[in-house]
Simulated assay, not measured.
Amino acid sequence: MQLLFALLVAFFLYRDGEALIERLRRVAERVGSDRALELLDLTGDTVRGVVWGLIGTGILQGVLAWRGFMIAGVPGAAVPGFMTVLLSIVQIGAPILWASAAAWLFAEGEPGWGLLMLIWGGVAVSSTDNVVRPWLISRGAKLPFLLIVLGVIGGLLAFGFLGLFLGPVLLAVAWRLVERWTQRTAAGEGVAGGGSLT
């Protein structure tokens, strides 16, 4: 249900997204706040980073899984490799595929290849999800890597699939607000300190 809801929202945002952004920019300009424009740009960059993080990680996991399937001798390796891409993007769980392939290898009397498939899937395929995705998102949003990791994991735990988008965006906006607030506070203290010395 969350995936269907996300696709429905994405359809309308892709269809009317430019008009919505333009209206939000006009509102920000009318309010006269440069901070609002900056936060609007930050939100767009973060959402783009999340999308590219999901797609890029899914493709990388699919390629790694496909190579593992080919090396282990799984028939039709391209099909489960492609399915890994799709399952990685929608967050259902690519381990279903490589664990199934390992079980098939064990059943076929290939315990060595089955064990190798389990290790390859656990270390190479699944671990990229925890490293590559936050790295791609942090590059797009120009934010600290740890902040994005916390946003992705926390958002996923709190909101499910939609949390992959909400978590990093909310943390990124909060981070920029705190950053601006501390800069203004430091600037105010500097002015006050300079006034007291003169």
Score class of each variant (00 low, 15 high):
75 P>L: 05
102 A>V: 04
39 L>M: 10
64 L>M: 13
71 I>A: 13
69 F>N: 02
77 A>W: 10
42 L>I: 11
99 A>F: 00
80 P>D: 07
71 I>S: 02
89 I>Q: 05
74 V>L: 11
69 F>K: 03
83 M>A: 15
87 L>E: 13
56 G>M: 11
65 A>S: 12
43 T>K: 02
96 I>Y: 04
67 R>I: 15
51 V>Y: 10
63 V>A: 12
45 D>S: 13
85 V>N: 06
93 G>N: 05
100 S>F: 10
41 D>Q: 11
75 P>E: 11
68 G>Q: 08
98 W>I: 07
72 A>W: 09
51 V>W: 08
100 S>M: 13
88 S>M: 08
73 G>L: 03
68 G>E: 03
88 S>G: 15
73 G>K: 02
77 A>R: 00
82 F>L: 15
98 W>K: 03
78 A>G: 08
46 T>N: 01
51 V>D: 03
75 P>A: 07
94 A>Q: 14
53 G>P: 04
101 A>Y: 09
44 G>Q: 13
70 M>L: 14
45 D>N: 13
51 V>T: 15
82 F>R: 01
39 L>T: 01
62 G>D: 07
52 W>Q: 12
101 A>V: 06
102 A>Q: 00
45 D>V: 05
88 S>R: 07
93 G>R: 01
91 Q>H: 10
65 A>I: 07
60 L>M: 14
89 I>R: 00
80 P>G: 10
66 W>L: 15
66 W>R: 09
97 L>V: 04
89 I>Y: 12
92 I>E: 00
42 L>N: 06
98 W>P: 06
85 V>Q: 03
58 G>N: 09
56 G>D: 03
48 R>L: 14
78 A>Q: 11
44 G>E: 12
80 P>F: 02
47 V>A: 15
90 V>I: 15
52 W>L: 13
54 L>K: 03
79 V>Q: 05
66 W>T: 15
43 T>F: 12
45 D>M: 08
81 G>E: 08
67 R>F: 15
50 V>R: 03
102 A>P: 00
97 L>W: 07
78 A>E: 14
102 A>C: 02
53 G>H: 01
42 L>W: 06
77 A>F: 11
81 G>W: 01
81 G>R: 05
55 I>E: 01
87 L>G: 02
91 Q>W: 01
65 A>Y: 08
74 V>Y: 04
48 R>Q: 13
53 G>S: 01
55 I>H: 00
102 A>S: 10
40 L>C: 03
57 T>M: 13
75 P>F: 06
87 L>F: 15
41 D>V: 11
71 I>F: 14
47 V>D: 05
64 L>D: 06
100 S>Q: 10
86 L>C: 12
87 L>R: 06
82 F>Y: 10
57 T>G: 15
66 W>C: 13
91 Q>T: 14
69 F>T: 04
89 I>K: 08
40 L>M: 11
43 T>M: 15
46 T>Q: 05
75 P>R: 08
102 A>T: 04
68 G>S: 08
85 V>Y: 09
82 F>P: 00
95 P>F: 12
90 V>P: 00
66 W>P: 01
49 G>L: 01
91 Q>A: 14
46 T>W: 01
100 S>E: 03
60 L>H: 08
66 W>Y: 14
48 R>F: 12
62 G>V: 06
85 V>W: 08
53 G>W: 04
100 S>T: 14
66 W>I: 03
67 R>Q: 12
51 V>P: 06
98 W>G: 01
72 A>M: 14
93 G>Q: 02
